[in-house]
Each structure stands twice: as C-alpha cells, then as structure tokens.
Amino acid sequence: MSLVSVRPRGIEPWDEVVSRLPPALRGRLDGVPAAVRRTAEEIRLRPRVPVEVVGEGGGGFVDPQGRLTPEPRDGELEPALIHATLERLLEWSVYRAGEELRLGYLTLEGGHRVGLGGRTVLRRGRVHALRPVTCLAIRIAREVTGGAQELLRSLTAGGVMHSTLVVSPPRAGKTTLLRGLARLISAGGPGLPGRRVVVIDERSELGGARDGVAQRDLGPRTDLLDGCPKAEGILMAIRSLSPDLVVTDELGRDADVDAIREAVHAGVAVLASAHARDAADAKARPSLSPLFDGRSFTRVVTLSRRRGPGTVEAVQELGMQACSS
C-alpha cells in the first residue's frame, strides 16, 4: 500500500517553500522543471556547492539558470546567501527560535521542516547553539490521503481505537501518515464515529501552525497543542481536553514514554511515531523498549520508501504475528 500526494489548500508545497527564500535563490529555483517540483522532497543548501533538489521524480544540483545537473557545476552558494536565507526563513527573528535552533531544526508555516548544520557551540558538554549555521535541508511537507484510510481499518478493528506506533527511517512519511490518520479519526465516517483528537505538535510539523492555528487539515474534532513538549502536552491534554486519541510525533525521551503510559492507563489511545527501521529496531531502542510491553502500544506500523514515501511494510499486532500489506 502506498500513500498518494494531494495538493494542500490550492498552493503547491514547492511554491509555498520557495516563496520564503531570498529572491536570488528563488530566481534559480524558478527554472526547475515542473515534474521535479511536484515530487521534490528536499531543497538542500550547502556552502560552496550549488543548491540541490532531492526527490522521487528526479533531482540534482541547480545551476544559476535553474537547470538540473547530476553533479555540482556552476552556481556555488556563498555562505552569506545561506545566512540570509536562514534569517529570512526565521522572519529576521532569531530570538523566537532559541530552542529549535539549539536542537538543529526549525519549522515553517505549513509544516515544512528545515534541518540545520553548522558549528555546534557546547556549554557544559551539551549542545548550546549552532553558530554559525552553514547548511540548510528544507524538507517539503505534503498532504497525503488514501493509504491512511486503508490503514485506519486495522487500527480501529473491533470498534476499539488501538494505540499505535508508526516507525520508519527518516523521510518515509511518518508525519504525513499521522496527520492523515488524525484527520480521518477526527472526521469519522461510515461505521466510525468522529472522535476527539488532541495533536501534541512539539515541532509544529503535524499542524504547520501559525500563531497556534493549524495550517494543515487535522480534522473537525481536533485540538492542537502547538510547540508543546510531548510529555507535558500529553498530560495537559488528558487533564483538560478529554481526548479519545492523542497524536504526537517522534518519541525518543524517557519522559515521553512515561507520559504515554499515563495516557494509555487513563483510557486514552495514543498514535505516535518514532525513528526505527522496523518494529524490532524500535524495540531495541532503550528509550522505546518499555512501550513494547503489550499494554502501551497494541499496533506497530512500519513504513518505508520502497514504493515511494509512505509505503506501509507491515502492521504488527503486538504479541501476535505481523500482517504484511
């Protein structure tokens, strides 16, 4: 089963991202062929190297005329232009992105995530900041439907909402699938009443929120806690928003695990994602293994890019045999 891309809110994700770049970069990227724009997943900026476009439908390095070449040729980026791009993406407001910058990413309106590289500044042995930021990996977020609908049946089998962990390596469509499932569960449909969903969106990727208002469709019965740490958010949601389902992205800290156990034992289903190649890998991660006790998560969905981002490789019922798609 593979997930299908659709256009969000009438504007192409590529255009949404490129419109935020400085004119000098926009000029180059405007020449990229439409077929590549439609399927592009990342725009990468590195010093002394031309802009790189990465995607399923082809990609390459962009020369000053907007032509794609498989190897870097003309159009090397000056570090100053990369810095200007970062400033512009931050709306010239570095002071608003302190924690995100420390963690090496920022999220744009619309849920597009920008990964950051550069020199790390350490304080007491821990990363305190990235300064200067020299590399940007802009990941283009896309709305996906279709596969989520099919998956929904196995996650709500028997009229019960199963707490589910979605695992995959990076760029396999976890966030997109979570968003799609949140929307479908919130909206409901034949045989599936709409449920109250709370999205805990620590990195603002699921909702792509602006000033706390989701820019992505998360469904009509969904409340959003934007920019909220997962562990705190889950507990806040249970206390005050009475959800049927809590949705959150990229588990990995001990506190997240504790909060998920709290939710599950409070009768709230959890839909979450984590980085891992498959369920076995996820179980081997010390920070996630406590969740494989058969009581926290009862379903594990494994995604890959085998047939494009969002390919569902397996849906495993914990303690039971995996049923492959």
């Binding site: 010239w92 407001s93 570095v94 002071y95 302190g98 900041a129």
Partner: peptide
Amino acid sequence: YLGATDQEDQ
C-alpha cells in the same frame, strides 16, 4: 544585532 541573536541578547 537586531533580530539576529537570542532573546536575552536582544
């Protein structure tokens, strides 16, 4: 420095 540093520095 306007906008270019963290909140404390601003």
